[in-house]
Design a protein around this nucleic acid. Structure first.
Lengths: 212, 212
DNA sequence: GAGTAAAGCGGATAGCAATCCACTTTGCAA
DNA sequence: TTGCAAAGTGGATTGCTATCCGCTTTACTC
């Protein structure tokens, strides 16, 4: 769940049985709406109605629309976190930091391509919610940790924020849907920013699809 | 091609006298609302009422809320454009491309700090509107032009998009308001990113009043 | 089990973006 | 000047997000 597990303060308040039941019903209804009627049909009203309850309940459980949408991404987010925290290298521990960072950003790009539509719902509901979410805190912590290892002399906190900035669904929509750029080309651009181009140890994947 | 349609006042369809009059009244009313009651008070309803007309007129003139807010930024945008298109170096023509790019991104950072609140109105109204706006087209054209000159071998179109990605008001709010980072520190981070991408050592001439 | 305080519930409500359409104004052309 | 089609206008309307608050359910205690 998107409990405050990322917060340092520790234990989350226990959730009452009816509350937990409704949380599940809401998430199921929202998933079903996305699947059956498309993302634009997923409004708080529609979710509440589809889940058979009042809108007040949905707001009580999720606070606002952006948090509901972020919660919808939680399952795949857990898997992603698992992969880069304790999965096999180069994404997980065991590879050099620079290599892990590259693998991490590539995987993040794939993740955005996969989940772009739901992510755009969250972004549209509140662009700034991204930066107070636990999801972003985790991306930031991981990126700056790897940067600290790879480039100890740099302002790694700032670099982490700047490197993560392109990974927003609106930019990905623009690049892939409107400008016809592939996700491989985006990854190559990120590699360039990382300076991987000058690193001999990297594999030479340099796709050259349609230029603009 | 350098002339990207920027101002909302298009040249293609001549605008009727009453329409032009209302456009001005709307922009004046919106500016006044921002000044006197703060950005969050600037709703389409409030603007229409303050300008003494129906909401339908405001929508006819500006399409939607994000476009009205972008139009509010137009005056300062014109000045910014003037500075980097034909002002004195290093922002304007005459300096090496890498230097111009650095000056351009620094100036862009300053611009976002200055106009952040109105920019956030536009971002909140529609995060993806950024990428279809004339403003973004101009930023992109200029950035990729300078990159083409500085790094002809790179995928400059992609790099331009990636380099511009951090320049969104929501990230600037997070970095400056929430994390207490100064705009000088943000600029230094951008320089680092540019340095890696350019494979060029940092310019020994640090900007000014070095805040870390 | 019964009592009880806290948590949860849901529909009424307010305020907003955006659309629609019957009416008015404008500018051109005869 | 006058006719008139195109452009512009404004407020009623729809559907949304989010809040509020009286009522219900839960889980804990005795």
């Amino acid at each position: 769940m998107t409990r405050i597990e990322l917060s340092v303060t520790g234990q989350a308040p226990p959730e009452r049985a009816d509350a937990a039941r409704n949380r599940r019903k809401i998430l199921d209804a929202a998933s079903r709406l996305v699947r059956e009627q498309g993302p634009q049909a997923v409004t708080m009203n529609a979710v509440a109605h589809a889940a058979g309850m009042g809108v007040g309940t949905v707001y009580r459980r999720f606070g606002d629309a952006s948090q509901l949408f972020l919660a919808l991404l939680d399952d795949s987010e857990q898997r992603f976190q698992q992969a880069f925290l304790s999965g096999p290298p180069p994404l997980g521990p065991g590879a050099p930091a620079a290599e892990r960072l590259r693998a991490f950003l590539h995987a993040l790009a794939d993740r955005i391509v996969e989940q772009r539509e739901i992510m755009q719902l969250a972004e549209a509901a509140s662009p700034s919610a991204r930066y107070s979410s636990g999801v972003y805190a985790m991306l930031f912590a991981h990126t700056s940790m790897l940067l600290r290892e790879a480039r100890p002399e740099a302002d790694t906190a700032m670099l982490a924020h700047l490197l993560l900035a392109p990974f927003v669904p609106s930019l990905f929509e623009h690049l892939t849907m409107r400008r016809g750029m592939t996700s491989e080309r985006i990854k190559a651009g990120i590699d360039d920013l990382l300076g991987v181009a000058h690193d001999v140890s990297q594999d030479p994947v340099r796709p050259v699809d349609g230029a603009s």
